[in-house]
Nucleic acid binder design. Structure first.
Lengths: 247, 247
DNA sequence: GCAGTGACCTTACCTATGTTAATGTGGAGC
DNA sequence: GCTCCACATTAACATAGGTAAGGTCACTGC
């Protein structure tokens, strides 16, 4: 069984056996499945749980009154949706499945229990949420400063590297379920232009994208056109604060 | 003395006298001042403190290799920069003063002490950071979906309402120190187009902006052109989770 | 076998916004 | 009063990216 959350958190810190068992236990409780396109939680609802994505892709999105939709974030296997959300009275956006999805709902009490008994997990989860915030910031830069080609290239680099951290790539390929419409809603461009942009990346041999599979023959080359700097993903373990033998 | 943080947190929950004293004490320690345009912390540095803005405006920004700059967030009086940052090894962006700024540096130990002894403050600070994340998401929507006019109008609405929450407005006016260049770097548009857009808002009597002072004669009208919905700022206290008499 | 659907792709045309560069304006220093 | 400088403004022109329309292909249901 794949355990993408554990795999990802270990990019930040080493977890003890007890830590891992705790995470496995949490992830095995309260599992819910959604079909592709189904809403996991909708704007206006009261958030009661932290959602952990076990399998599949989901997204955060927001819709303007006139129907324009913006995808705000992607949730990949091992991603958590908003530590502490239950503090808020209601959701200000929706979360929807892109592919079929399996999530674990983490209750407030389970979360608190984990925070108290497992300082290394606590630390790692804060790291996870700081990285999610950094990703959101990078998206702001992406939308504000990069042109269509750079923007697309940047998104592909980010998703590939995140999937790699969760153990969801093989060699230089990964599953890639997003439609061109969804890419457009993510990057703030029309589907026509998404298509043009993908063609351009293909023509430069920077990507192969076919049958829901993405291959990046030369990641460095793609990063170069994207002005991509992975520092915001904070994936290097050196310099972590809790030592591996502390527990 | 203005205490914008306390004022803002009370939008979320009622604080006890002891809570307020704690916050005043924290804000009085380790004060640093910066002149306009000075960097408070720079990308690549190791974050050691949580910064609290006492006076003035600051911003988060990021620069691409080729010099393009994106402002990612504004910090107004009472805003905190990243709870828990010290978990990260290095900053992935910079924070710079816009006006002259006075900040309080909050150390890890002071922060932990506050977390342990003051559950209502803890709760309120998590709320603060969830709101900051929601603002970042809304900026993603702004850059991705809204056109120049809507985008500008949206930013002005947001800043005005946030300043109001911190007690930094009088009637329907506030200080507004941003230059057109900074607005452009925020909204991903050229200064020329910023200028055109501001002219358009002025011509429609939606704003008066002169001598670093912004007046919004009819906030609802400005919100309407911006497709602005304040729900993401989570400013209404009803439905809070800790009761005022719990402590 | 065929209608219906969703994803992808393409072309032609149009517009919001960028670029460049010139000009205006008000305050700070001398 | 002059010079400098940062900022705002305007105009003329260029272009990235949007819109509208339609076509192909694969798959599903009947």
């Amino acid at each position: 069984m794949r355990r993408p959350l554990i795999r990802k958190l270990e990019k930040f810190t080493r977890l003890s056996q007890a830590d891992k068992e705790m995470l496995v236990r949490i992830a095995a409780q309260r599992i819910r499945r959604f079909i592709a396109r189904e809403d996991i939680i909708h704007e206006g609802e009261k958030p009661e749980f932290i959602n952990l994505i076990n399998e599949g892709w989901a997204c955060r999105y927001k819709t303007l009154e006139d129907g324009r939709r913006q995808i705000i974030a992607f949730f990949l296997p091992g991603d958590l949706c908003d530590l502490n959300v239950f503090i808020l009275k209601e959701m200000d956006h929706s979360i929807g499945a892109i592919t079929p999805v399996a999530i674990s709902e983490i209750s407030r009490t389970d979360f608190d229990e984990m925070m108290i008994g497992h300082p290394r997990i606590t630390q790692a989860l804060w790291w996870e949420s700081l990285v999610a915030a950094a990703i959101q910031r990078e998206w702001t830069v992406n939308l504000g400063q990069r042109d269509a080609l750079e923007r697309m290239a940047h998104l592909l680099c980010e998703l590939f590297i995140r999937l790699e951290a969760a153990g969801c790539t093989s060699d230089n390929s990964c599953e890639f379920p997003l439609t061109q419409t969804e890419l457009g809603e993510t990057l703030g461009m029309s589907t026509v232009h998404v298509n043009r942009t993908l063609q351009e990346l293909r023509a430069s041999n920077l990507i192969v994208l076919k049958d829901r599979t993405l291959t990046i023959p030369n990641l460095q080359a793609l990063q170069d056109v994207a002005l991509f700097n992975a520092n915001y993903l904070h994936l290097d373990r050196e310099g972590r604060h809790l030592d591996a033998n502390e527990e």
